[in-house]
């Protein structure tokens, strides 16, 4: 089935964001902890693939985040610090 190689990044282009600057990123991931993580469940859980483990480094980018909070729940290693974005910033649904 074509699902195996499905690329989510092609899909989320239809959703809108008002992206805040990097120093105001609402989620910060401590990549040092990820190196020893037994499960990487954040990667499986994130619905917009903001987490990628690449050459033994966790690469996190907050820009495509839809603020669901899944990564905070999947990570039981204390690597994710999660805040709401500042007012008006972040995902902006026109349908919902």
């Amino acid at each position: 089935m074509e699902v195996i190689n499905f690329d989510i990044k092609n899909k989320i282009g239809v959703t809108s964001w008002e992206t805040d600057s990097h120093e105001n990123a609402h989620i910060v991931v401590n990549g040092n902890i990820c190196k020893n993580c037994p499960h990487h469940l954040c990667i499986a859980g994130c619905p917009t693939e903001c987490f990628k483990f690449y050459e033994n480094e966790m690469v996190f980018q907050y820009e495509d985040c839809v603020e669901c909070g899944t990564c905070d729940i999947m990570c039981d290693q204390g690597a994710v610090s999660w805040n709401n974005p500042r007012g008006t910033y972040g995902v902006k649904y026109s349908q919902g």
């Binding site: 699902v3 499905f6 989510i8 899909k11 993580c37 037994p38 499960h39 990487h40 469940l41 990667i43 499986a44 859980g45 994130c46 619905p47 917009t48 693939e49 483990f53 899944t70």
Partner: peptide, 13 residues
């Protein structure tokens, strides 16, 4: 809860 599964499974799939 293991890395091999996480490399494969995705909620969006």
């Amino acid at each position: 809860e293991d890395k091999a599964s996480s490399a494969q499974h995705r909620t969006y799939k």
